[in-house]
């Protein structure tokens, strides 16, 4: 079955993106990527230490994965743009996940500033994937600004609470002609599968893998769950009913007419 995922001029087999922010040991990351079969890994520039090889996350990534720097720490469009430019110069990757967060309590993204950053960076040739609060009008503006995909949150970062924004994400899947990638909030493989069944193009997972007792095994589980969910979406799940069919239909008496 040919089900390639096309984004930013690349064809991907895997629909699981991996975040790297919360791992106890960078040496786990190559094994996590391998077990999950992920081909896109996001790295926060704020954590990359170019002076010490063992502290430089980029040293842990093989050349066959796409490095997607993210703008963690940016509080406005201007900071996100600066971070993206530094990251591209340092890593050679023109992919960027825009993360503009001006709320440190819930870590909710600022859609307004994000739109501005998308517009400028897309013009500069970046493959821009904006992290956003799932809002249809904001997503449309990001499409117009040149985004390569839209990354709505499932729940606030680090909460592992699952697809709390499901209804809003469904609207984006229906109305936006770009890949919808759920980023943040997914706590379990079953929730990743659920997002994929709904029609999301991919999911991004960090906390749930990095903080598992066995991150490598959890990465494998997420990889499989994403594949399963995607297959279910392609298969077209049968209609579901809220109630079992009554053995004595309530309108059975009408047949006697």
């Amino acid at each position: 079955m040919d089900d390639k995922f096309k984004i930013g001029g690349k064809e991907l087999d895997s629909r699981l993106f991996i975040g790297t922010g919360k791992f106890a040991d960078y040496n786990q990351i190559p094994d996590v990527i391998k077990a999950s079969k992920s081909q896109v890994v996001t790295v926060a520039l704020r954590r990359v230490d170019f002076d010490i090889p063992e502290e430089n996350m980029l040293e842990y990534l093989s050349s066959d994965v796409i490095m997607m720097p993210n703008t963690s720490g940016a509080r406005n469009a201007d900071e996100a743009i600066k971070i993206a430019r530094i990251a591209r110069a340092a890593s050679g990757s023109n992919w960027v996940k825009i993360e503009v967060i001006s709320d440190q309590k819930y870590l909710l993204p600022d859609n307004f500033e994000t739109i501005t950053a998308v517009e400028i960076l897309a013009k500069e040739g970046f493959v821009v994937l904006p992290y956003m609060s799932p809002d249809l009008m904001a997503a449309k503006r990001m499409v117009d600004a040149g985004a390569a995909a839209i990354m709505p949150l499932g729940a606030p970062i680090g909460t592992n609470r699952g697809l709390k924004t499901k209804e809003l994400v469904k609207v984006l899947i229906d109305e936006i002609d770009l890949p919808i990638i759920v980023d943040a909030g997914i706590g379990r493989p079953s929730e990743a599968a659920e997002a994929m069944e709904m029609g999301c193009a991919a999911v991004l997972v960090n906390t749930a893998i990095a903080t598992a007792d066995d991150p490598v095994l959890m990465a494998e589980a997420f990889g499989q769950a994403v594949e399963c969910g995607r297959k279910a979406y392609l298969a077209g799940p049968g209609a579901t009913a809220d109630l079992a069919k009554a053995s004595s239909p309530l309108t059975g008496f009408l047949r006697n007419e």
Partner: peptide, 16 residues
Amino acid sequence: VAAHGYKPILKDWHDL
């Protein structure tokens, strides 16, 4: 810190 199963972070901001 590493022996306790935690990552010692030396850099968490990049001067812009």
